[in-house]
């Protein structure tokens, strides 16, 4: 049986040690929507307790079995066949349970809209990483390529 391949990707942290902390990826995420902002990105860069120790990259890793989905009281999060979730904005009541549930702390609330900011796996941020910190990884039917 031929395997169904979806051309969907997730963002992968290739090597956070290469990160210089420029936050170009964060700016890219919001620019995709025409904003110049660091207010509502879906990817986050933080220093590990001071710049000298380098940076950590926080991004949705498109879980095959996503914790955030299970805790949503109104089932606004649907699992995608290739891992990760899709948010139904109509259903979402903005309770923030998914924010608390994510083990990666990759979900934040959009304070203006009162809804969670979920990664769309578009890969726009990857195109603006100047130092190969993040990359796009193809996902086949909910499992990662070996």
């Amino acid at each position: 049986m031929a395997e169904l391949i979806r051309r969907i990707r997730r963002i992968k942290v290739l090597d956070s040690e290469r990160c210089v902390g420029c936050e170009s990826c964060m700016f890219a995420c919001t620019r995709r929507e025409g904003k110049a902002s660091l207010e509502s990105p879906r990817i986050h860069i933080r220093s590990i307790g001071g710049m000298e120790r380098g940076f950590t990259v926080i991004i949705c890793r498109a879980c095959v079995d996503p914790s955030c989905m299970y805790v949503c009281p109104v089932s606004a999060l649907k699992k995608r066949k290739v891992g990760g979730v899709k948010l139904d904005r109509e259903k979402c009541i903005g309770c923030g349970s998914c924010v608390d549930a994510c083990p990666m702390s990759a979900i934040t609330m959009d304070e203006e809209e009162g809804k969670p900011l979920m990664c769309l796996y578009c890969g726009f941020c990857v195109d603006y990483c100047p130092h190969k910190v993040i990359g796009k990884e193809e996902v086949k039917n909910g499992s990662l390529p070996k």
């Binding site: 210089v20 902390g21 420029c22 170009s24 000298e52 380098g54 100047p130 130092h131």
Partner: peptide, 16 residues
């Protein structure tokens, strides 16, 4: 040991 950048600068000129 490391290079870091100012926010919104892809160059990263700060040499440590």
């Amino acid at each position: 040991g490391r290079r870091i950048a100012c926010t919104h600068c892809p160059v990263g000129c700060i040499h440590l």
